[in-house]
Design a binder for these strands. Sequence first.
DNA 1: AGAATTTTTTCTCACTAGGAAGAAAGTGTG
DNA 2: CACACTTTCTTCCTAGTGAGAAAAAATTCT
Lengths: 382, 382
Amino acid sequence: MSDKAPTSPVSRERSREIKRLSVILAARQARRLSRVDLAEMTGLSAATVTALVRELVAEGYLIERGPGAPTTGRPREMLEFNPRAELVAAVSLEPPRISCEIADSEGAVIAHRVARLGANVVETVCEFVLDLVGDNLPSLRGVAIAVPGVSSNGAVRLAPSVGLVEAWPIGESVQRRLGVPVVVDNDVNLMAAGECVAGAGADVANLLLIHVADGIGAGLVLDGKVRRGASGAAGEVGFLPLGGATERRYSGVGEFEARWSVNAIAERVVALNPGRRPESPVRELSRLAATSAPARDYLDEVLGAWAGLILSCACVVDPGLVLLSGAAAELDDPALDQLQTLVSARTPAPTEVRRATLGDQAVLHGAISYALSAAVPRPSLP
Amino acid sequence: MSDKAPTSPVSRERSREIKRLSVILAARQARRLSRVDLAEMTGLSAATVTALVRELVAEGYLIERGPGAPTTGRPREMLEFNPRAELVAAVSLEPPRISCEIADSEGAVIAHRVARLGANVVETVCEFVLDLVGDNLPSLRGVAIAVPGVSSNGAVRLAPSVGLVEAWPIGESVQRRLGVPVVVDNDVNLMAAGECVAGAGADVANLLLIHVADGIGAGLVLDGKVRRGASGAAGEVGFLPLGGATERRYSGVGEFEARWSVNAIAERVVALNPGRRPESPVRELSRLAATSAPARDYLDEVLGAWAGLILSCACVVDPGLVLLSGAAAELDDPALDQLQTLVSARTPAPTEVRRATLGDQAVLHGAISYALSAAVPRPSLP
DNA sequence: AGAATTTTTTCTCACTAGGAAGAAAGTGTG
DNA sequence: CACACTTTCTTCCTAGTGAGAAAAAATTCT
């Protein structure tokens, strides 16, 4: 919340914004609808909707698509929401790389670029975004920047597993340069947001996404809102004190993730089945477990540990749904069923376990969701 | 969100509600202020504020209190918010007892009653509220009902530690009878809300309250909002899998709370210092630890376990602040400092530990906060 | 071909929020 | 003590407005 003086919540400017936003949100959700539908969905009168639609058609938000299905009476003039009217830039900082995609509000990528991350991140981000968006700059609604570490108030403190980069408030700098809202967050948080709006969690308002890669992190969506934390450290589940009380001091690598991340699993799989390190260690472990008792036993240990992690989170926030991402999504069906059984036996409330479905697209959809939310003017009331 | 058709977000009725609420919220927050102050705080024009203040004075929300401090120019006419204009009923179901308090929006109790809980809870609640509120019924803004178990969508499933009572949607029934908003929630959630608005957490938007009594439960306030959970089971931290992997099935009593609740501590304190069971086992343990090595060792164990609990919660939601309630609030200063040190050493983000301050009043303030929030008409936008 | 139905557009008007002007109620100054 | 100045509060005025109602449009039905 800005410190600036509040403007009137009932001013003409504010009413205008609210009406437009009502119609845009309804159209974005429905995709294809008539003026009658818009009136029903927003509560605005038919006269008011007519005037707003005229404006939004002129601006390219809505496209007239001809008559609707034949019924008795004047046929409806069908309108279609134009996702190209709203573009979003999704930037991923993955040292030493940076990638940038321009997508419309449905997730269709219209331009992208990958390059090495140089010294001046702000300059690079602005250059990429402006270059990729080109003539469509007036349609750019916002920028979301994904980083592989904890963000706090727009400052970035990258995860130890990928090396350190100095922290600085890049969000503010980029926002000043580009003139649109810019949001910076942890990539696992963006994944959780993406799965919630367009993936395996599109049917719920609460979910926990567990991402297993070099580290183990979690993203939480609680009542439709991503949980970042008081210092931006929500979801640091790699540090949960599970599986024995070696009370180490906070050292940057969690005791849980040291034992149960994909690297640890890969080492053990190579020990069980000498040869090259598999590309998908969890998939390989699931495969070996079908025929090898030691592999079977180890898989049981991994599932037990992950079930403990899920139980810890369920006790604290009761998400109702857990999505498995990264290497965790590579469990085969029997292993997934076993994990579900372990979780169901111990959690105080029903907790379903599913695989995340968006894969690499999760961050993009999360970025779109963030950027569009950030572009919404907030009401003055709490 | 109700299924009913939305009403226009810019209708005259809606604008009127928004203006009134802006002024009421500003006055409630400031307590004593002028029309100029109201205009600044709300963004409304001086003319609009004058009209609204006239209404609210007539209705008893605001009281004119004479000129403000002398300055050059026309003196301000100071207005005072009248907490008696908003009454709240706070009901506690503590089988076999029921208590009911009527309080104003500042927490001053104007009437209360305690009785045995009979078979017909809805009837009893309505009778108590109506009786206690008397002629002030027009000022009743809402009712909050605290229950010592998990609530889910207004249905109550009481905690095993106090015996089972059949579940039923009492919130809806009471709301239908009394005609004001009724909210039902777990008493620990209400404590957390209370400490956040009027207690030890009044300066933050995020906190975790740990309540140690017969059971161990937690209340979470995240970004100013109480976290209930997808099934109402957030904060069931008694079931966290800490301190050794006895993977019991969910049995109604958490493995953690079985070992570290006040009953377990009381038994151990009696073993360490034979005699009658102390009224405050945690205080007694702190006292004994000053002179007895075995007591010292046991206190270290308890603090270690509670630190593990706090660490688990901090990893998941990063609350930034932890409040100790119930028996946990009885730790003496050295023990509290020790707990803080243990927590600081292990959490990935700064996490301060404080005692809760409201004691028995926490539930009341939480109920007030809930009931006043429930009375606020919501904007149609998400 | 005309009636009926439904949707969209236009018309009308009571209401309104805020800018501006005026009134009120002080303090400061000569 | 009278007048000027300053600040607050109230009243006046008006351009804008959201929705109800009426009219127009565009179909299907008989």
